[in-house]
Design a binder for these strands. Structure first.
Length: 214
DNA sequence: ACATTAAGTGATT
DNA sequence: AATCACTTAATGT
């Protein structure tokens, strides 16, 4: 665990903080598709991702699920960070997208570290900021009723997390994550194919412009 | 060959 | 954009 922690966060956190993380945090290795947090669970720890990715799902007043965002290497969960302060309950559902390694940090340390470590403070704010920006653009797409854009972004995100432009997925699964119907997804997929943005076959979608990160 | 599941199509709201 | 009803295509047993 030490090596990976250093490898991923050596330049993010100061030495003392890294030491404290490795003593106080518990290392966990989780397989693909394992539920970690459900809605209503009390949050006791915040995760720090070392390897793999975690999908964060939200739910509206009905039982409609929607994929909010992914946690990847170097990420933590800003949702957890905020509602964690007072041991509140989760309003999100977390699920491993693939085999994942992470460190769980007890929430009590949150406040302490915010005061104690400059880099931790920066980290918290930074992950806040990036999530906020993501949310804003998501809302934008929703307001414009722009499912096509949402779908394309979804596919790109998924490819990013997988580190591969080729996704093994059905239209039905996509529809579920986007909280829409399969028929609509199929039609939008066909559009994207005609626009030469993707290729699609049964159980498979390939992103054509796959440029690993900006 | 048959059943099951994924994906395509047209019409309707 | 969602839903329905139906077709076609691919896959598994």
């Amino acid at each position: 665990m030490q090596e990976k922690l250093l490898e991923r966060y050596e330049y993010v956190f100061e030495k003392e903080l890294l030491d404290e993380i490795s003593t106080v945090g518990q290392f966990r290795k989780i397989n693909k598709d394992v539920p970690m947090i459900d809605i209503g669970d009390k949050l006791t720890h915040i995760p720090l991702i070392l390897e793999g990715a975690v999908r964060i799902m939200g739910e509206d007043d009905k039982e409609n699920e929607i994929l909010l965002y992914y946690l990847e290497i170097g990420d933590s969960c800003s949702m957890t960070m905020t509602c964690c302060m007072e041991g509140k309950k989760s309003n999100i559902r977390a699920l491993t997208e693939k085999d994942t390694e992470l460190i769980m940090i007890p929430i009590i340390k949150m406040e302490e570290w915010i005061i104690k470590y400059r880099t931790w403070r920066a980290f918290v704010f930074q992950s806040y900021d990036s999530r906020m920006k993501e949310m804003l653009s998501a809302i934008d797409a929703l307001a414009f009723h722009n499912l096509e854009e949402r779908l394309y972004k979804y596919l790109r995100d998924k490819a990013m997390v997988t580190h591969s432009p080729e996704l093994e997925i059905t239209h039905y699964q996509i529809a579920n994550d986007l909280n829409t119907s399969r028929v609509v997804v199929s039609r939008l997929i066909r559009k994207l194919v005609l626009d030469h943005k993707i290729e699609a076959n049964r159980n498979q979608v390939k992103i054509l412009e796959f440029l690993p990160k900006v």
